[in-house]
Computed example of a mutant assay.
Amino acid sequence: MSDFLNALLAVVLAAGTAIVLVEAVHWLLTRYARRSPLLSRLERTAHKPFLTTVTLFAVQQALRTATGEFPGRHEVLHILVILVIVSGAWLVGALLLVLEDMALSRWRTDVPDNRKARRVRTQVVMLRRVTVAVIVVLAFGVALMTFPAVRALGASLLASAGIISVVAAVAAQSTLANVFAGIQLAFSDAIRIDDVVVVEQEWGRIEEITLTYVALQVWDDRRLILPTSYFTTKPFQNWTRTGSAVLGTAEIDVDFGTAVEPLRAELRAVCESTELWDGRVCVLQVTDAVRGMVRLRALVSAHDAPSLWDLRCLVRERLVAWVWEHQREALPRYRAETPPAHDPGRPATITAVVPETDEDARVFSGGSDGESRGATFVGRPAPGAQP
């Protein structure tokens, strides 16, 4: 009975001392947390796991060293060892999550040019998932090794580890492929969180990347769930891999008699009147002229993909309205020509006057931006570039 009372007294003293020390440290962190974001996050996140770990460790050491034998002493110590392992894993995970949160807080994604921030965020989120999984597996394994029967089986398990690993790899081939693909995506920079992609003819934004699947938020708020191995084995379009600014087109078909220059001026006016345009590219070109119609393609640029979509719709709407109001005769039509009665064998002579076009009609020439784009496509140095 005296041994049991001594053990109870040792537990109370050890737990009380540990709680006092931890609360003192917590008070100091709270006092200086206003000056340091790191201390502030530690004070909020790591307080409970730190208190639990220190208290359990102090109780376990007190029972081990300061008490004699009492009924159930071995079982109690074994349970305390397991609890210390679990709480220690909780504490390590909390500390690592604090560091990862600090890394995320330094890279904001709510800025215009957030490509690097999105890459870092993707990698940190993937590392967080791997970290939690590794900590849980290690803690579970260490806790199992505290049982003598499990340690006795260790040698035989290691001897058959080769066969087991082969069987497990065959059984979980697709799952392991997705896991490795997820790690590859996190560090290959092929896709990042918030990237705008076109997958399976669906246009959307990368919402979440895990070790096994990628969630794509489609433009109409649907979610397309794809295995991570899809992005390592099949082609897809990434609109924002090197930057958020993108180019887009709006096409309309008009009659052969359409005056192009007024439409080009109207396109420039539309772009300059909206904040959706980023001021880089505003070009109108004739890209096709077959079957009695002329196809006009307006090429415009925007800061990001959502703005580009709205800008393309706006350009198409304004150009159609302008044609209807000012050049209604330019609407597409089908015509048949009848030769004159006095000379049925001689076709009418048509003289076309082609005016000189300005920079708004050129994509790969004319301006400094166009020259650089053209040089990139043909593989020659841009004008003015250093050799």
Rank of each mutant, 00 (worst) to 15 (best):
R121V: 02
D113R: 12
W309Q: 04
A15T: 10
L51K: 09
L39S: 01
T65Q: 11
G257Y: 08
I209D: 01
T45Q: 09
E43V: 07
P235C: 00
V132W: 06
L91A: 00
D3C: 07
A330F: 03
V20C: 10
A24T: 06
T122G: 15
M126N: 10
R73K: 15
G248M: 11
R264W: 04
L9R: 13
L299S: 02
G243H: 10
R128H: 14
G257K: 15
E275R: 02
G345A: 02
I163C: 07
R362Q: 04
S365V: 13
R35F: 05
G384E: 08
V260N: 08
A245T: 10
F50T: 14
H342F: 13
P148E: 05
T45R: 03
G379W: 09
V260T: 08
E337S: 01
G162Q: 07
L157T: 12
L96D: 07
L28Q: 08
V11G: 09
F377E: 15
E317Q: 13
E100I: 09
N238C: 03
I350F: 11
P332A: 12
E43D: 12
I183A: 11
I350H: 05
R295Q: 13
W239C: 05
G292C: 00
V290G: 06
F57R: 07
A139Y: 12
A161M: 09
N178A: 08
R73Q: 12
R333L: 13
V300E: 00
T17P: 01
R119W: 12
H326I: 00
M102V: 00
D110W: 06
T109H: 02
S40Y: 11
W27A: 13
I82D: 00
F187C: 06
R373K: 14
V198I: 10
F4Y: 13
W309F: 04
L104N: 00
V59C: 00
R108S: 14
P49R: 07
W90Y: 15
L153I: 01
A152M: 15
D278Y: 07
D369P: 04
P262G: 12
A139T: 07
V378C: 14
D343C: 06
G366N: 02
A361N: 14
G384T: 04
C271T: 03
E371N: 09
S188I: 10
W203R: 09
Q173W: 06
S87M: 09
W239E: 04
A46I: 05
A382H: 15
R44F: 13
V132I: 12
Q184I: 05
E371R: 08
A269V: 11
T212N: 04
L226E: 05
D360G: 13
W219F: 12
A159M: 05
L13Y: 11
R35Q: 14
T242Y: 14
R41T: 04
L39G: 02
